[in-house]
Amino acid sequence: MSIQHFRVALIPFFAAFCLPVFAHPETLVKVKDAEDQLGARVGYIELDLNSGKILESFRPEERFPMMSTFKVLLCGAVLSRVDAGQEQLGRRIHYSQNDLVEYSPVTEKHLTDGMTVRELCSAAITMSDNTAANLLLTTIGGPKELTAFLHNMGDHVTRLDRWEPELNEAIPNDERDTTMPAAMATTLRKLLTGELLTLASRQQLIDWMEADKVAGPLLRSALPAGWFIADKSGAGERGSRGIIAALGPDGKPSRIVVIYTTGSQATMDERNRQIAEIGASLIKHW
């Protein structure tokens, strides 16, 4: 067993022997301040990774656009098919120029040779490549099948209805392509620590998230040296922004954090800054 596999296998073990965790309302004060600064709703939840206990939450059962955070769930569904012998990570998928959609920095470079399922998941999570996500959605049967996968996990809230990039439209009061912070946090925890996926697939999923290259201005910008984070960000229309993450000190994750916002007129930089400040408060009061 590799060191990384050992780390993920012992996530519940280490967490069980940690000192009790206590909620700190100071972080919620910052979440509410972010709402004021952005002029928009902000949803927040913080779960203990081992027990699933909610440590703090704000608007945990209000719907927010998922945006690209759905790509972690998508690759979880792909990995479940791999575990069941219905898919192979090494299978190569070929596609054409007509398949390319807006923001496809990886797939646009491989029109000639195609990409493997493993490479597509890596591109979808680490670079948020939209064509990679659409190609992977095709392998599982489309958005409705991802929703069905989530329902089978016990998540009857999260739903995907459309493809990239239309799913980022974020129309107010439109339930399409949305989740709730509580539902997303619980589902992410199941994917990373539950028995739904094999140990190898859980490790692969967290490795992809740990290698995320496009979430630097968010929670990662607030992390002290030595902290662990595996995350996936999302951005959408109407001032929408979000991030889902597993993080913790001492090089291992111990909490799940989900943050979503929508309806702001603020710039992307300002949305990023507010999420980073929430992260800084979380870490300060850990």
Rank of each mutant, 00 (worst) to 15 (best):
56 E>P: 12
220 R>S: 05
234 G>C: 06
176 R>W: 11
283 I>R: 11
24 H>L: 09
126 T>A: 09
134 N>V: 08
27 T>K: 05
286 W>H: 04
280 A>F: 13
130 N>H: 15
133 A>D: 05
94 H>P: 05
93 I>T: 01
263 G>P: 15
140 I>L: 13
200 A>C: 13
237 E>V: 11
216 G>T: 06
62 E>L: 00
145 E>M: 03
284 K>P: 04
156 H>E: 11
181 P>M: 01
86 Q>F: 15
172 P>I: 09
52 G>T: 09
31 V>N: 10
109 K>P: 15
54 I>R: 05
120 L>R: 01
63 R>Y: 03
100 L>P: 02
125 I>C: 00
95 Y>K: 11
280 A>P: 06
234 G>L: 04
210 E>L: 11
110 H>A: 09
43 G>F: 14
40 A>G: 10
284 K>L: 08
118 R>V: 07
258 V>L: 08
259 I>F: 14
132 A>M: 02
234 G>P: 00
133 A>I: 00
250 D>Y: 12
138 T>Q: 04
238 R>M: 05
179 T>D: 03
125 I>F: 01
30 K>Q: 13
164 E>T: 01
261 T>F: 07
238 R>G: 05
27 T>Q: 04
223 L>W: 10
165 P>H: 02
90 G>F: 01
51 S>V: 01
210 E>D: 14
165 P>K: 04
136 L>G: 12
78 V>D: 14
214 V>L: 14
181 P>N: 06
275 I>V: 13
155 D>C: 03
163 W>A: 12
144 K>I: 03
284 K>R: 08
185 A>K: 14
192 L>Q: 05
97 Q>N: 06
285 H>Y: 06
217 P>L: 08
106 V>T: 07
109 K>H: 10
236 G>F: 03
253 P>M: 04
283 I>D: 07
219 L>Y: 02
177 D>S: 05
119 E>W: 13
100 L>F: 03
219 L>W: 10
121 C>V: 05
103 Y>V: 08
260 Y>R: 01
208 W>S: 00
60 P>K: 03
114 G>H: 01
38 L>P: 01
31 V>Y: 06
228 F>A: 04
204 Q>L: 03
235 A>P: 01
226 G>W: 03
202 R>V: 06
232 K>E: 14
201 S>L: 12
247 L>D: 04
73 L>M: 05
283 I>T: 12
119 E>Y: 15
281 S>G: 10
55 L>Q: 08
272 N>D: 00
48 D>F: 02
263 G>V: 13
283 I>K: 11
154 G>L: 06
179 T>K: 01
124 A>P: 04
175 E>K: 13
274 Q>P: 11
60 P>S: 09
72 V>G: 03
259 I>L: 12
134 N>H: 10
182 A>L: 09
183 A>M: 10
99 D>P: 13
32 K>E: 12
199 L>K: 05
193 T>G: 09
145 E>S: 05
100 L>C: 08
49 L>N: 01
170 A>M: 10
106 V>D: 15
182 A>M: 13
197 L>R: 00
275 I>G: 14
90 G>Q: 08
135 L>I: 12
272 N>F: 15
211 A>W: 07
172 P>G: 11
189 R>E: 14
264 S>E: 03
215 A>N: 03
165 P>L: 05
83 D>T: 06
48 D>W: 03
171 I>L: 03
252 K>Q: 03
174 D>W: 09
53 K>N: 02
176 R>Y: 09
159 R>N: 00
248 G>P: 01
247 L>S: 12
144 K>H: 05
121 C>S: 06
45 I>L: 00
237 E>P: 09
132 A>H: 02
44 Y>I: 01
215 A>C: 07
233 S>N: 09
25 P>V: 03
101 V>Q: 04
207 D>S: 11
141 G>T: 15
156 H>L: 06
211 A>M: 15
106 V>E: 15
63 R>E: 11
221 S>R: 07
38 L>H: 01
